[in-house]
Simulated assay, not measured.
Amino acid sequence: MTELTYEQPLNEKTRSYLRLEYLADQLEFNFENDHQHACFFPLFSLWELCERCDYRNDVIKEFDRQLCLLNKWRDLPDSDKPQIQQLVDKINLHRCQLIKSPRLGQALKNDRFLSAIRQRFSMPGASCSFDLPQLHFWLAKPWSERQHNYQVWCEHFRPLLEAVKLILELCRNTAQFQTQIAPSGFYQGESNQALALVRVRLEECNGCYPTVSGNRNRFAIHFVTFEHHKHTDQAIKFELAACR
């Protein structure tokens, strides 16, 4: 029996972090498998996102916020001080690595090969050998050599991606999954504390998927049948985690 987990961000910051995490997973997948020119799509997507947004400063600010919270929790009488200190050390390590890292993607601009093929990848079908003979030449190299090149290129983004994964891990750990029932395929929830992420775990045999909408204090879940693309009128059992 297959269980699927769906995640819906409730603010723009979490939405951006989930996109970065998705691209990080795509990069890691390409480290282990030879996907020819397809490996460049997540790399160039990540590069473009980092040019548009100042993720580094946003992540550093988020780390500062987390450190402030952890220091408050450490002062509580029943707190697990060793575990809190372990988290503080981990955050400080990633924060330091991010501060020391050069401007994201800047070093790749000096790579003539990447700069040349990047301009073409946004055009449908423009990665043919007659459009990009340099790409055709690179793809003919042994996989071990291309794999090393790919890892070097992706390494420039590693401090950011590892930091984002840590932030999302901390966010997901703020709530445990609890079983819920959605009468007539609809569920509504609310929270006195600001929420960042709604996670829904659902068995595939239900034949439907959730669509989530909301803001930091309330959210609504509609379950939609895959076959008919309509809201189901059946009671749906699922697991829910509302994360801060």
Results as ranks from 00 to 15, higher is better:
Glu3Asn: 14
Pro9Asp: 13
Asn11Asp: 15
Thr14Gln: 08
Arg15Gln: 15
Arg15Ser: 15
Ser16Pro: 02
Tyr17Gln: 13
Tyr17Leu: 08
Leu18Glu: 13
Glu21Gln: 03
Asp25Ile: 02
Asn30Phe: 15
Phe31Ala: 02
Glu32Phe: 10
Asn33Ile: 09
His35Phe: 12
His37Ser: 11
Ala38Arg: 14
Cys39Val: 13
Leu43Thr: 11
Ser45Asp: 10
Glu51Phe: 13
Asp54Asn: 15
Asn57Phe: 03
Asp58Ile: 09
Asp64Gln: 12
Arg65Tyr: 10
Leu67His: 10
Asn71Arg: 14
Asn71Pro: 00
Lys72Asn: 09
Arg74Ile: 08
Asp75Thr: 12
Pro77Asn: 01
Asp78Thr: 02
Val88Trp: 01
Asn92Lys: 15
Leu93Gly: 00
His94Ala: 03
Lys100Ser: 04
Arg103Tyr: 10
Arg103Phe: 06
Leu108Asp: 08
Asp111Thr: 05
Phe113Met: 05
Ser115Trp: 09
Ser115Thr: 11
Phe121Ala: 11
Ser122Gln: 08
Met123Gly: 00
Met123Val: 14
Pro124Phe: 10
Gly125Gln: 12
Gly125Glu: 07
Gly125Asp: 03
Ser129Asn: 08
His136Leu: 03
Ala140Gly: 15
Trp143Glu: 04
His148Ile: 09
Pro159Ser: 13
Lys165Val: 09
Leu170Glu: 06
Leu170Asn: 06
Cys171Met: 04
Arg172Asp: 13
Ala175Met: 04
Gln176Lys: 12
Gln178Phe: 06
Gln178Cys: 11
Gln180Gly: 01
Ile181His: 07
Ile181Thr: 08
Ala182Arg: 05
Pro183His: 01
Pro183Val: 03
Ser184Asp: 01
Phe186Ile: 13
Glu190Arg: 08
Val200Ala: 06
Arg201Trp: 06
Glu204Leu: 14
Cys205Gln: 13
Gly207Thr: 11
Arg218Ser: 15
Arg218Met: 13
Val224Met: 15
Phe226Glu: 14
Glu227Gln: 12
His229Gly: 05
His229Ser: 12
His229Arg: 15
Ile236Gln: 04
Phe238Cys: 03
Glu239Asp: 12
Arg244Thr: 15
